[in-house]
Amino acid sequence: MKLKVYADRMSQPSRAIVIFCKLNGIDFEEVKIDLAKGQHRSPEFKGPSS
């Protein structure tokens, strides 16, 4: 199973994770999201309800 990295390239922390994975040879899938559009707040990203 490949690591999924949800990243917005405009976000410095996201870029740091992507660069870290590439430099260390970590096999990952980058899932691009747009934080400015609020994609991270969609129901798709919510965890299990309590």
Rank of each mutant, 00 (worst) to 15 (best):
C21H: 00
V5Y: 02
V5I: 13
G38E: 12
L23F: 04
G38L: 06
S11I: 03
I26R: 04
Q12Y: 07
K32R: 12
K37H: 11
R41Y: 14
S49Y: 09
L23W: 02
E30D: 04
S14Y: 03
S49L: 09
I17Q: 08
I33E: 13
D8W: 09
A7W: 02
P48V: 12
E44L: 09
K32S: 13
D34M: 09
C21E: 02
S49D: 12
S11M: 14
K22D: 13
K46C: 06
A16N: 06
Q39F: 09
Q39W: 08
F28S: 02
V18M: 11
D27L: 10
I33H: 01
R41T: 08
F20C: 06
E30R: 03
Y6I: 01
E30S: 01
D27A: 11
H40D: 11
S50D: 10
A16E: 08
F45M: 02
M1H: 15
I19S: 03
M1R: 14
K22P: 00
E29W: 03
G47C: 08
L23P: 00
S42F: 10
R41I: 09
A36T: 11
Q39R: 05
H40I: 04
H40E: 12
D34T: 03
L23A: 05
F45V: 00
E44N: 03
